[in-house]
Design a protein around this nucleic acid. Structure first.
Lengths: 339, 339
DNA sequence: ATAGAGAACGATACCGGTATCGTTACCGAT
DNA sequence: ATCGGTAACGATACCGGTATCGTTCTCTAT
């Protein structure tokens, strides 16, 4: 065990170089007021001592940190991953770095509280601005740049990037109806989340539009997980009049439908048509027809908007609506002749 | 635009509650020396004002932060994602939170420099310890708990969790040899990375062991990306004597082999056998036979080891070797009768 | 020669917390 | 009545940087 070496501070550098801390700080921040040879000497000492500045100390005094924060419920979710890819890309193109705060498990108790805590933690401490993904947190924050991707509530007090969940769901239904399906099951998302509610409404409205009565048995609960998708699919498929098609509120639960179908020895799409929502990476591999809501792009745009806010530039729009696109793969079958 | 509200500080809370900052701090940290009603009043003020403590300020003075840092090259990589899942799990079980630092793009210039910078940034500023994933950074760090997952160099000066890359590669080769393959192509990983080198050595040694001469044409370069896997696969498949099987240094490049095969209208496994390494999520969907090196578990164990280090508990081992397991799926075909 | 300007650098306050030590009030014991 | 002990709380130094202002020195213009 090596002796506990104290970390090198700016004081050490100043002493070693025979100058004041002020001068070292000036060199570190590229200010003009330093003679050429002094600067060289200080830089030499810095690299010799292996000095790196203390983020905490710096961010206390100076406003600008060139750092953006990201609060995400669960890093492991495919959904989060897609969004993060886009954020990553925007970060790589910018002068900012990224600090991700995660709470490990959304479902653990007090997660929302934690979430709020972290947002303000990042917010008034370390970062210039914060991106919140799929959350209701930070409703009380007013004093710093914040942007939400797919917020849980419809009209947050801060800017956001949202998918066109309603329109996307309607398109799915029109597609299934065109294929001749009339008994279409719907696996809900978490009811407290705005996007889940929008998709359900799209499902219902499209049926009404087509003159088909809504059968309550065909609408089953869910919480966006594969597990719940599996359970709900079983429920649907064991109905006396099971649906010919299932529309799951997201791809993760659609994957659960695949599991259930396999277990009941139903082939997709021959015996059952399935559509999801999100277009996560896995969807491609299982041939799931779904709605691409360009999650990565949402992350990308949100980051760019946040950077604008940090730089005190005006935003073109407070709410950026991201269009959706139906991605037709091999999980649906036509029951009628389609032109 | 709302007026720039100053963030609420401990001073504000103290003033509002009619006590000193010391007392507020005591309440925040759960110290005993506070009267019951005083505590209640302060807690009331805190929630009324929506106060949250400034991480930067706190971590400057107090040694313990209950926060672990993670430096990861690219959040979007399936490899990183798997490791992070395990870390996430360990974090959820612990009292620590996690701060992830990413630089967006490994391939952007100066990334290694950035990486080192971030490590020490987190290290001596914000976190109690740091996990480094797949990197050569932090060679110069000596003064704080650090652990590496799959480090780029063989013997880092700090503890690490490593896969048994050599053994895993040997097993793959023995498997392919048993299936009757003799012309086996190898797509390399990034040569500067220790694990890539170990896998290559496993490939060569297994061939030697089987008495098969090494054909240099069958060993092609790569850099762990799907793109390079695609290009290298084309190179192999256009050989005068193309291989009957390709062993890619990781799953990502194996995915590139799939692309190349599809383009050349070769069926897998009928016309070409493919094996990867890592067992990322995608591998399951395409039926890729690969080596599971339990990335998630590696992240989990590394986190637990780091927590021990932070708590000044002794480590059982400095280098935790994680065994590998061949996952047989549908991307390989037997050329001979196998008992 | 002297004033004024500007370059180069130092001294110090300050950011928002925590750690340490000091102070006050109140209690029972001598 | 005086004292010692303890509970409750306040005052202040300090963490490691940056921002601000002041100081010193040189050089040029008058």
């Amino acid at each position: 065990m090596p002796t506990k070496k104290r970390t090198v501070t700016i004081q050490d550098v100043a002493k070693k170089a025979g100058v004041s801390v002020s001068t070292v700080s000036r060199v570190l921040n590229g200010k003009a007021d330093v003679a050429g040879d002094t600067q060289e000497k200080i830089l030499g000492v810095i690299s010799k001592l292996g000095y790196t500045s203390n983020l905490a100390a710096r961010s206390m005094r100076s406003r600008r940190k060139d750092l953006l924060g990201l609060v995400v419920p669960d890093i492991g979710f495919p959904y989060s991953i897609e969004v993060m890819k886009g954020i990553n890309r925007a970060i790589a193109e910018s002068t900012f770095d990224l600090l991700v705060y995660t709470m490990g498990d959304v479902h653990k108790s007090g997660a929302v509280l934690h979430e709020q805590h972290y947002v303000s933690l990042l917010n008034n401490s370390l970062t210039d601005g914060v991106i919140i993904v799929a959350s209701a947190a930070a409703e009380f924050i007013t004093d710093a740049p914040i942007i939400a991707v797919d917020p849980h509530i419809v009209n947050p007090r801060y800017p956001s990037v949202q998918g066109t969940n309603y329109q996307g769901a309607v398109e799915v239904m029109q597609y299934l109806l065109k294929l001749g399906h009339e008994r279409i099951g719907f696996i809900c998302g978490r009811p407290e989340i705005a996007s889940a509610e929008r998709r359900l409404k799209g499902y219902k409205d499209a049926l009404k539009e087509a003159g088909i009565a809504i059968d309550k048995d065909l609408i089953v609960p869910g919480d966006f997980t594969t597990k719940s998708g599996y359970a709900s699919a079983l429920q649907l498929l064991n109905l006396k009049h099971p649906p010919t098609a299932i529309f799951a509120a997201n791809d993760q639960s659609a994957l659960g439908v695949f599991q259930a179908a396999q277990e009941m020895e139903l082939r997709i799409p021959e015996d059952l048509s399935v559509v999801g929502f999100d277009n996560i990476a896995e969807a491609k591999y299982v041939g799931l027809t779904t709605v691409d809501q360009f999650l990565s792009e949402m992350g990308y745009i949100a980051t760019q908007m946040l950077i604008k806010m940090v730089n005190h530039q005006p935003l073109d729009v407070q709410v950026h609506k991201m269009p959706t696109r139906l991605v037709e793969r091999t999980s649906c079958r036509a029951l009628v002749q389609v032109n």
